[in-house]
Design a protein around this nucleic acid. Structure first.
Lengths: 250, 250
DNA sequence: CAGTGGTCTAGACCACATT
DNA sequence: ATGTGGTCTAGACCACTGC
């Protein structure tokens, strides 16, 4: 029923009836419609792969391809050994940020009675990696680089990378730390930027997500009291976790 | 050479030497290392799938699985019928935003001498979809909803969804428009938020990207001069395209 | 035309979670 | 033990690109 329509050209060869849209995509759409229509409500289990394979008359791999699309779209959650389930609409934690001072950060999570920590993954001199080179465009002189993993409630939440003049990196940086505080400077924001990216292999490993998972990127430069830029930070945060809110209401 | 190590248990059965990390992931890492090391510089073509299949002694499908990971990680770009190429580091368009007034938006692209347009995809009353329900939490009364596609230099760039009290939707909304202007109100920002998400099936279709592609989400509520919230906007922007910069320097 | 990546099949076995 | 999703193979054919 969901097979590619084929016609016999007379010489015994079978040719596709070029509906052009591949089966796995039509399948993904069909399943998404069942979700949207309520036939498969949030939390419910999809039929197993062999069941779907039988129902639609296509190979199990084709089914898997369709379900993988729904997974990437965030419509379903695949649990190995158990089944595939319809996701409930995400609710993101909102981080309120004053548009002017911005003095609130992920650190504000601590004040939310959430059990968070920041641990150093790697520290050392910056090299010639693409991101090292970008950092060099924002800060003067030779740079050091520190990578940290922010964990909240025992779950990895974000990866931060800090670049700073080599002289500023504390020699005795503890493995568990609050980077900004450990620099011992009163920093002010120069600029901050928001963008989105997919998890690369390293991100995926540390954050325990699939490669390509959407991440919210927040980066920027901070200045020392004398106005000199001394810190460039790039933070990649699990995209489905968080929302930065800027309030303009007076 | 890259095959799963197996041992004969004596009864003729072969059992995996549980290196536990699947072949396709080890392959992806190997290829990523070749990219990072410069052995495969930006712009260069990877060996074709049959070539990689022969080199590593694994099935072509396993190769494809590895390359697909690199694609999702943004490391390579697959061009059908041509080959797979190492991506250059992305450079994003920076949109400067005054943290206080924020009176700049995607509309600022027009002033950048870029050829942009906003076209209506759909318009009508809001239903009970999850996002419709969220909009209802921000605005009073019965809502209308307008979906638009923002195109710049003939390439789809962003999808916007606007919710507003039904009375406010212009009856003669042109197919090509500037939504905010066509409301004919002097709006001020109540709040704006940034988050990240993966493209769903509809997003992917309109933006011409793969399902799950990271998108930057910018949403918020605007108020009429009398202070009443009258517009809720949610915009999904191709993640690798753009960066919102908030400047704090005085 | 030849070469590239894209889709699909049938079948095997594995890893994980529950019963 | 059973059922779920995860990995891998061998082989076929298709769709697109460039020569």
């Amino acid at each position: 029923m969901f097979k590619v329509a084929r016609v016999d050209t007379g010489d015994g060869k079978l040719v596709n009836m070029r509906s052009s849209i591949p089966v796995y995509l039509r399948l993904a759409r069909t399943l998404q419609e069942r979700i949207d229509s309520g036939a498969l409500p949030a939390g419910s289990r999809l039929p197993s792969e062999p069941e779907l394979s039988a129902e639609f008359g296509v190979n199990r791999l084709t089914i898997r391809q369709a379900v993988a699309e729904l997974d990437r779209a965030g419509s379903v959650e695949i649990r190995r050994g158990i089944g595939t389930f319809v996701r409930a609409p995400v609710t993101r934690v909102s981080i309120d940020v004053d548009p002017l001072s911005q003095r609130i950060d992920l650190g504000s999570m601590h004040s939310r009675e959430m059990n968070g920590s920041e641990k150093v993954i790697a520290a050392g001199p910056a090299g010639s990696a693409p991101d090292d080179r970008e950092a060099a465009a924002h800060l003067p002189g030779a740079l050091s680089r520190v990578d940290t993993l922010i964990t909240i409630e025992a779950e990895p939440w974000a990866i931060s990378t800090y670049w700073m003049p080599a002289a500023l990196l504390p020699a005795d940086l503890p493995q568990e730390t609050n980077m900004v505080r450990s620099l011992g400077l009163d920093l002010t924001y120069d600029w901050r930027a928001f963008s989105a990216t997919g998890a690369d292999i390293g991100d995926a490993e540390h954050l325990d997500v699939n490669i390509g998972t959407p991440l919210l990127v927040r980066e920027g430069v901070s200045c020392a009291p004398d106005g000199q830029p001394v810190l460039y930070v790039r933070r990649r945060i699990k995209g489905d976790r968080i929302r930065f809110v800027l309030n303009y209401r007076r």
